[in-house]
Simulated assay, not measured.
Amino acid sequence: MIQPDPDTLNALVGKMLNDLGGAFSVPTVRIGLRLGLFNSLHSEGPATSSALAKRLGLAERYVREWAMAQAANGYLKFEPATEQFSLSPEQAMIFAVKDSPVYLEGAFDLAAAMIEGQHKVEEGFRTGDGVTWGDSAGCLFCAVGAFFRPGYVNSIAQAWLPALEGMVPRLEAGAKVADVGCGVGFSTLLMAEAFPNSRFFGYDFHQPSIEQANAHAAAHGVSERVRFATAMAKDIAETDFDLITMFDCLHDMGDPRGCAEHMRTLLKEDGAWMIVEPIAGDSPADNIGNPVSRLYYNASTMICVPTSLAQEVGEALGAQAGERKLTQVLTDAGFSQVRRATEGPFNMVLEARV
């Protein structure tokens, strides 16, 4: 038997302690977000645990232990001389500023949802069956929407749509847009707000998501030019779209090739399909050793692959499919032009044209 190297073992144990510290922080961070503890420190300034508890009508002993946990996490600042806790500007961007590109409330909710759904995915390991989207946890679709929203707020109108050839002028003049796999509608509504002369059609196969999307549209006062409907991607009947968008969902589909073939029939001859997918290299080795792929592979194991396997065909591309494989899916469906229009730290944006 090969004996473990002590230095390698100690380094691995140290890494595991850091990882477990992050895992243990999930429920305490969620409590801080739900009860307004982070927001109070951001909006009302530094406070002792007693003052913070009084602000929010909470029990001081719980607040004191919570605050010390967040200080130990590095999520709050602690001043020993005054016993005050505070949020730095950088910490506030993660825990309090909802439109910050790195606001992570949704990430902590998503981690909790994956734990909640563990037993169903575990059974899939034994049977090979999938787990239907929305069935693995109480509000997985809410957590996914919240997780992606900050990136969409800061990227869709500012970087992703402008990267498509000639598309922004069409949207400004008045285009017809389909947002397929729209979830709770954040992406659709952001585009609608940025381009008030265009019409938007959001489609998703998950009825509770569409119900939330319609409620969001009504709250934003855009229902007259934004329509949401429950539909499988391959069953969409509306045609003549200037633009089709898919945000972080093509790899979740059971039949992405059949979906791609159908998208081609829905576009105008000079239309474009924008596919936003998790960023990944083309070989598994390219995706080892970086924190983004680590997140995506784990999420893909618990969400993306089970979701695809629960549908017809069940190709299960996974969240780290890579540009080469995705491009092959698109070209096989009849798209003659496929290019990476732009990218960011978490996503790549492909543009496909017939």
Rank of each mutant, 00 (worst) to 15 (best):
T230G: 05
A159V: 06
T127N: 03
P80C: 00
L9V: 13
K15M: 14
L250W: 09
V13E: 12
I236N: 07
F200G: 02
A113L: 03
G334Y: 03
L104W: 08
G344Q: 08
G289L: 00
A51M: 07
V153S: 11
E105K: 07
A299G: 14
A112Q: 15
K98L: 03
A11T: 12
N154L: 01
V13L: 15
A233H: 04
I236W: 10
A163C: 10
A352N: 09
F335T: 02
A72M: 06
A192F: 00
Y297V: 12
A113G: 08
G185R: 02
Q70H: 15
S283H: 15
V144N: 07
M16K: 12
F205E: 07
G344D: 15
A159D: 11
K120E: 11
D252Y: 01
F95S: 12
T8P: 01
K54M: 07
G174Q: 00
T127V: 04
A157I: 00
G14W: 04
Y62E: 10
Y103K: 02
A143I: 08
R34F: 05
R55F: 05
L37F: 07
A143Q: 08
T307K: 06
D99L: 08
H216F: 02
P101G: 02
G318W: 06
V102T: 12
P291K: 02
A59V: 13
S86R: 08
A219K: 14
A319H: 06
V63S: 09
S308V: 11
D240G: 10
A47T: 07
G202C: 06
N347C: 15
V131W: 11
F148A: 13
G334R: 14
H220P: 01
T239I: 08
M274P: 04
P162E: 01
H206K: 06
R170M: 03
F200N: 03
A157S: 03
S300M: 03
L56S: 08
R227E: 10
E105P: 01
E193T: 09
S155N: 15
A321V: 07
Q84E: 02
F205V: 10
P169V: 01
Y152H: 05
A81V: 10
L267A: 01
E312S: 13
V131I: 06
N197V: 00
T132S: 14
A67C: 15
A299H: 10
F200D: 01
L12G: 07
R126P: 05
